[in-house]
Computed example of a mutant assay.
Amino acid sequence: MGQSESVLILGGTGQAGAGAAALLRQWHPALPLTIAGRDLDRAQRVADELGAATATTIDLRRGDLGLPADHHYSAVVAALWDDRLHGLRYAQRHGLPYLSISSGLTDIAPEVVAGAQRANAAPILVASHYCAGTVVLAALHTARRFGRVDSIRIGAVLDETDTGGPAGIADLERWSTATTAGLVRRDGVFHWITDPDAQADVRGTDGTGLPGRSIAILDVPSLALATDAPDVRFDFAVGESTGRRRGEPASFEVRIDLEGTDREGAPISTSRYLVHPAGQRPLTATGIALGVERLLGLRGEAVAPGIHTPESLLDPAYAVQRLEETGATFIDTPGGG
């Protein structure tokens, strides 16, 4: 499918937006891209590096985003926190697919309501999961060998130097202000948990433990409802990653533990790490790029209007393939299946 109109990337000068734009340019060289930010010079630099891309400024306080009325786009990506939802409203008014990554579990209600009120306007991909849904997709790819999944436990280490720039830090602060409770699924029921139940020891690939806690994150309901696993938990720790302890750049580390049965009913379990030596940016960028590719119909059939999540649209095997192309790898733990 060809595209004559441009993908508008709000926050396209940030780590996530610029990274996603670079992947889209690599995967689809002819796809027009518009890098939108508050600083035109910075946006132009990103656009020039991409080639065949344009730059523009935006004003998120305005319903029209400060964009000329005669400019037309093929999709809107919010790679930043849009507290007035003007990006979403702009997309709905123009019938454009929309993707967001910064709302988090505690802030998606306005997006969901907006989508329900204008259900036929355009598809909305809510990808405010960890690393834009790539961890969910990796876990679902791991679960493919299971006949029944009984429990899923995710343990993520975010290096304190790899929080994604000012926008990423602001997101973390906003989410922690909204709630300090964690969301888990236990015996088929979603529960809010607080200390001490929320506390957890999160271990990196070298076995070093960091103090972490269960968090309220979209990955929990996405994994629970996609697999019907009655027990799901996502623990999160911020600290020094294994890569940095080795004197290397900050690394990305997520442990994925699953228990259940195989297709013949025999008990099985698996434990593996999804890692990337360059930190979280490549995974978040891949999640955004996969979502845009799918929303535009560049891979797969057309996406219907309404609310969508990454696992409802994207093939886990294909997502893992794309992650591995960026340098991500899986490391099985001893005795992990």
Rank of each mutant, 00 (worst) to 15 (best):
V157K: 02
A21M: 06
A156R: 08
A78W: 11
V232R: 11
Q321L: 06
R299S: 01
D83S: 10
E248R: 13
E259P: 00
V136N: 03
A138S: 15
S100L: 04
R38W: 07
A30Y: 03
D187G: 04
N120H: 13
L10N: 00
G12N: 09
E49V: 13
G287N: 11
A266H: 15
A69W: 06
T270C: 11
Q15Y: 04
A139T: 14
L296A: 02
P32I: 02
T208N: 03
A289N: 09
E259W: 05
Q15L: 02
T227A: 09
A114E: 15
D107P: 11
L105A: 14
L283H: 09
V112Q: 12
H86I: 08
A317S: 13
G291M: 10
G297H: 08
A285C: 09
L40C: 09
D197Q: 14
V238G: 05
I108E: 15
G165P: 02
R148T: 13
A43F: 03
P97H: 08
P277H: 10
D83T: 10
G297Q: 10
L40A: 09
R45H: 12
G260V: 01
E259A: 07
E253H: 05
D83L: 03
I108T: 14
D195M: 10
H28R: 13
G87I: 06
V292S: 03
H191W: 05
L314A: 10
R25V: 01
Q199G: 14
R294K: 13
R93P: 01
P32S: 03
Q280K: 09
Y273F: 14
R84T: 12
A109M: 12
G209Y: 05
G14S: 03
L80P: 11
V184I: 15
S222N: 14
I108N: 15
